[in-house]
């Protein structure tokens, strides 16, 4: 597990998520996102199926061997040492391939210009900005705030009132997850929802 030590992951506890959508709003406000773009979104899965319905907050999961990075024809993705998957909007051509590859529908395309063509891709940065100079105007305009550089917690998890949404070092997150599962007497569950898709087994 040592290789996992400094790897950042998201975890949303679907037992705690009350579908308040606060994370979506916090994210949109913090990064001044254009309307129509939700980097983070609360979704209800298995709606209407008794015992299986649950709500969870999804954004880019910053996958291991990120599929988006694999398919990008202009190679504009770069993956930080802590696993955060970022991309360079000045190189992106808005082709949409990353969206087709993504298991979470994370990449989005604000409409650009007079013909309503899709502009550069936008997605969750785990509040880690982009390739420009950290906290520069250009970085902020294109990617929003860079809270990670300031040593702060990404805004979605920071504001989550039930602490359903957690982000941090993979080991710490996994420990919290196990502790919560144990305290509920739910027995051993292998991983939180979405983890196997995002991070493999």
């Amino acid at each position: 597990m040592s290789s996992e030590m400094s790897r950042m992951k998201f975890y949303c506890d679907d037992d705690r998520c009350i579908e308040c959508d606060g994370c979506t709003v916090a994210c949109a406000e913090a990064h001044e996102l254009p309307t129509g773009v939700s980097r983070r979104k609360v979704v209800t899965l298995n709606e209407g199926i008794e015992g299986k319905e649950f709500s969870t907050s999804v954004a880019c999961m910053h996958c291991t061997d990120a599929p988006c990075e694999q398919v990008c024809p202009v190679d504009c993705f770069y993956i930080r040492e802590d696993g955060i998957v970022l991309h360079d909007k000045d190189i992106c051509i808005g082709c949409g391939y990353c969206l087709y590859a993504c298991p979470f529908g994370a990449p989005q395309f604000p409409r650009d210009g007079a013909f309503g063509t899709k502009g550069a891709m936008d997605k969750c940065t785990m509040c880690a900005g982009g390739p420009q100079e950290t906290n520069s105007v250009h970085e902020r305009e294109l990617y929003g705030q860079n809270l990670i550089a300031e040593g702060k917690v990404p805004v979605c998890a920071a504001m989550c009132s039930t602490k359903a949404l957690i982000v941090g070092d993979a080991q710490d997150v996994a420990n919290i997850y196990r502790a919560r599962i144990a305290s509920k007497g739910k027995g051993v569950q292998s991983a939180p929802y979405g983890w196997s898709k995002a991070y493999g087994n």
Partner: peptide
């Protein structure tokens, strides 16, 4: 298709 060879953008 070979966009990366042309630097994208």
């Amino acid at each position: 298709m070979f966009g990366s060879s042309f630097g994208g953008g």
